[in-house]
């Protein structure tokens, strides 16, 4: 029996479902605007270049006996003279300015270590966070001792990549009110290559009263919208509008409707990631709406029928209207 199950989730497909899935995959293969077959290279395959001497050898290439070979299995990209091979599945490659979601792994002296699915843990310096109260000042020894009151081990945070250094280390910062500790929600992990880079990675889905942070590193945070929560006048009075909100690890109580919306969105993302489709707000909401209009229960969204349905939808969408991303 041929295995056509997808990454991430294991589905028991009936024969007809398997055929439907295979058919929609074939449609996707023939969809317009796809990669040319010659763009794919395997490890140690030669890459065709016009002039060996003038070409710039980028990531994923090596030179052997004067011949340019790939060191990764992926897609060749050419920018002017630069030739690189982009692998499809790999760890997140940090770039300055990316919005990421991460998990604190260690609290050290003057810095937190954060896991963002990078090839090392990255640093968040004490000097790169906003202290509660919002005043800009020197970080004192007292601040250093109180670091755990800001972020503890295993806390989830959203942050921005501040710099990528030549030795491979990466620094984050949370110097904006939109970054900081994440509460009242759910984390979904997807492969980073599926996340489309956009201008905006913070999304407020007003219709579901849900906020969504699509980290470039493939960590996606879905939480109850801040304005939907019962507001606590006490806290607002203390923090005012001048500074970062008090980092509070206790979760608010969220209404059942919002909790369901969060789970439905999370499962939409899981289905898209299992099928290997691109993940950005349009596709997530499209899948979300499809599940509602078809009356699929949240738990059945991770079932075979819904998976095949979404695959067919995407295949017909891409083949029909000469669709280009």
């Amino acid at each position: 029996m041929e295995d056509v199950s997808s990454r991430g989730l294991h589905f028991q497909l009936s024969d007809s479902q398997r055929n439907r899935l295979r058919k929609s995959r074939e449609l996707l293969r023939e969809a317009p605007g796809n990669y040319h077959p010659s763009a794919f290279v395997n490890i140690a395959d030669p890459i065709h270049v016009e002039n060996e001497a003038t070409v710039l050898k980028g990531h994923g290439t090596q030179v052997l006996d004067g011949q340019l070979l790939a060191t990764l299995s992926g897609v060749v990209e050419r920018v002017d003279q630069l030739v690189t091979v982009k692998p499809l599945r790999c760890r997140y490659n940090a770039e300055t300015g990316d919005v990421v979601v991460g998990r604190i792994t260690e609290v050290g002296t003057k810095r937190w270590k954060v896991d963002i699915n990078f090839r090392q843990d990255v640093h968040l310096m004490l000097s790169a966070v906003n202290l509660p109260g919002g005043i800009q000042r020197r970080r004192t020894v007292i601040d250093e001792l109180n670091m755990r009151s800001l972020f503890e081990e295993n806390d989830l945070i959203s942050a921005e990549v501040q710099s990528v250094h030549s030795d491979g280390s990466v620094h984050l910062h949370t110097r904006s009110l939109k970054y900081g500790k994440l509460t009242n929600g759910q984390l979904v992990k997807v492969p980073p290559y599926l996340v489309k880079r956009l201008k905006q990675h913070f999304h407020n889905l007003k219709s579901c009263a849900v906020d969504m942070i699509i980290g470039c590193n493939g960590y996606i945070w879905i939480c109850a919208a801040v304005d939907s929560l019962p507001s606590n006048p006490e806290i607002e009075k203390i923090t005012g509008d001048s500074g970062a909100p008090e980092m509070d690890s206790c979760n608010e109580s969220i209404s059942l409707k919002v909790r369901e919306n969060i789970c439905r969105l999370a499962n939409s993302i899981r289905v898209l990631s299992a099928l290997g489709f691109l993940i950005y707000p349009d596709t997530i909401i499209d899948t979300f709406d499809a599940s509602i209009s078809k009356g699929v229960a949240i738990k059945d969204m991770l079932g075979a029928e819904f998976l095949v349905m979404i695959a067919e939808r995407e295949a017909s969408r891409r083949t029909k209207n000469n669709y280009m991303l």
């Binding site: 995959r25 796809n34 794919f40 299995s73 992926g74 290559y193 290997g276 489709f277 991303l325």
Partner: peptide, 12 residues
Amino acid sequence: NTKDLAFARGVV
């Protein structure tokens, strides 16, 4: 496998 992944995602 590479082709399957790339075609599912589409050109970005």
